[in-house]
Amino acid sequence: MERHFIKTLDDLKMTLLNMAALTQRAIEKATQAYLNRDEGLAQAVIEGDREVNNLELKVDQIALKLLALEQPMARDLRFILGTTKISNELERIADQAVNIAERTLFLCQHPPLDHIPAMDRLIEVVKSMLDTAITSFVEENTQKAIKLRQMDDIADKYTLEVLQVLIANMVQSTPATEKRIVNARRSVQTIIISRCLERAGDLATNIGEHVAFIVEAINIKHQKVDFDQS
């Protein structure tokens, strides 16, 4: 017979994975909505957030119960602490998706800006970071967790690029005042979107750190890692 404790641990893991899937979908949909100027999809992201919040509460609930009733030790203890931290990161990533969706709703009210290639790349990197973070948890793979920090540097680079493109755009834009204000507004909202993505990437990196803590009981959070730049 399977121990009740192990079953509850599985339950905790499943709830977290469920939450991870929803969060990943929220980022996917939010970026899709932005790229395609799809108001309906943006609206769906905003409405879907409640489900992620509920799952976060459920993770906390199960974790608290396990801590109080089972006095877990060693890896079990780290796993339970780790899942609560990861669920917190996921919840905040989902909030970034909501923020992106809200900016998108604004942008849809105005004619589109010129295409920004750095934004496409940023979206790709951040989605792939989220994917890597979740896989590192599922596979208990610390290597992937460490790789996230490298990806994070790339995300930062693209975020800066988006900012530079948009500042240049604001400075050079047409002299007509009304148009100029609209242009600045669109640009600022788009910069906020890039910031949200960058933030989501940071949070995904944190998830990797929690995975390293669960798997190897090491703290990679504040230690410098030398990446070979290949």
């Binding site: 121990r3 404790f5 877990p72 030790m73 060693a74 890896r75 079990d76 780290r78």
Partner: peptide
């Protein structure tokens, strides 16, 4: 020993 034991045998015992 109770948060990150070195050996799997210890880990298995303390985590039941």
């Amino acid at each position: 020993l109770f948060t990150r034991p070195a050996l799997k045998q210890t880990e298995d015992y303390i985590t039941g």
